[in-house]
Amino acid sequence: MIEVRNLRKTFDGFVALDDLNLTVPSGAVYGLVGPNGAGKSTVIRHITGIFRPDSGTVTVDSQPVYENPAVKSGIAYIPDDIFYFPSSNLLDMAKFYKGTYENFDMKLYEELRKSFNLDPKTQIRRFSKGMQKQAAFLLAIASRPKVLVLDEPVDGLDPVMRRQVWGLMIQDVAQHGTTVLVSSHNLRELEDVCDHVGILHKGKMLLERTLDELQDNVVKAQIVFREGTDLPESLQVLHRSKVGKVDTAIIRGNQERVGAALNAINPIFFDLVPLTLEEVFVYELGGVDYEVKNVVL
């Protein structure tokens, strides 16, 4: 549905995106993650047609996005810094959206507005941050888009509102098969809602997988080795540490295969657990020299 191919973008000599490839299948909920400054917002601005590629292509439904109103009318975008016309209220914004998006559904807007309990006549700049995000969300969903692009949609919201927003997004996906690209640092929450993940690093795609593949293919093993034994050579180890007699190793491979390999060396004890998305992030990036540094104060 969303295809980015060999995308290159430079700002004043700084290479923000370096031959980037990204694919979001139709109906997927794709989590775009990466360290600060990796290029997430830059990619998103290409996908929403704000930036034009220096080279490479950015297409939605096989059509290039840039300066293409036909394609853009099917994309709803909620940026990290949401913009509202200075003295507008929610009703004003709804009317503006209605004039811009041909599929805007006023009835749906009304329903959502009521369930979020937002006053249509108050100036939006007087809403709290959380309420402004809710407003952005309901305007986006009411536009009945084919593609939803969300940049940090729950950042700064309280736990109840976060769930409300994710719940609304999932409902839309479940009912209409909307394709969603969401960027967030909250990997704990993304893990629940995404089925695809792309890890961006220094303007390039480090790793792009379905969530199942990602979690089924790395395990955390805790092992107490017998005297004179160690991990089998055949295993690909991403990270290793030891506390007392217990070795902790992050190993590539599924639980069955790794379990079998470990059983073969007959350790005194071992345990295998799947990794959380957050752990996958930390270990994969640790492998490319982006890691928690021991700072001496």
Binding site: R163, G167, A174, Q175, D212
Partner: peptide, 18 residues
Amino acid sequence: SVRELASQLAINPNTIQR
């Protein structure tokens, strides 16, 4: 239904499906 549960729990429908 998969959809109902996904919406209630705010979890991706594929996970429920699995």
